[in-house]
């Protein structure tokens, strides 16, 4: 690679590192949400404030992901935006609706809903990561 390219390269690698860390955080939060929800379902508990808070946190992180990827999408990739943002927006909808749905159910199946949503979001983050690369 020639000199001007290396200068240009510096920005994407820094950005790439931010994205890698953020993806790991997303994986961690959704995995914690899924496992915690499964445990609460087995323990026969309704979704408590903390669990609903965790799903709200995941929702917030996914919105941050949406904003980050809109901000950096432009010139960095030849990824199809319809495919990528289709996944991000679907993931946001899944978590938002699951949160409401779990809040309305005062039995063990509230966390059950969140477990299903959490597992779905893990798969979707994996797909997002594949598409981005």
């Amino acid at each position: 690679m020639s000199a001007p390219v290396t200068v240009l390269d510096e920005q994407p690698t820094k950005l790439g590192r931010v994205f890698t860390v953020f993806t790991i955080v997303l994986y961690a939060v959704s995995a914690v949400l899924a496992i915690w929800s499964i445990v609460e379902t087995i323990r026969n508990r309704p979704a408590g404030t903390l669990l609903l808070g965790a799903s709200a946190l995941l929702l917030l992180l996914l919105i941050v992901q949406l904003v980050l990827s809109i901000a950096t999408f432009g010139s960095t990739h030849d990824v199809d935006p319809l495919l990528y943002f289709g996944y991000v927006i679907t993931a946001i909808l899944v978590i938002a609706l699951a949160g409401f749905w779990a809040f309305a159910e005062l039995s063990r199946w509230g966390p059950g809903v969140l477990a299903a949503a959490g597992l779905t979001v893990i798969v979707m983050i994996e797909r997002l990561d594949q598409i981005w690369q």
């Binding site: 699951a98 159910e105 039995s107 059950g112 809903v113 477990a115 299903a116």
Partner: peptide, 23 residues
């Protein structure tokens, strides 16, 4: 309600993701 809520949620996830993908 009850277990049906989890079932409905899974159906909802499939409706949403199948629609997004098919679209």
């Amino acid at each position: 309600t009850g277990p049906g809520r989890a079932l409905t949620a899974v159906y909802g996830v499939f409706a949403l993701s199948a629609t997004a993908r098919a679209g």
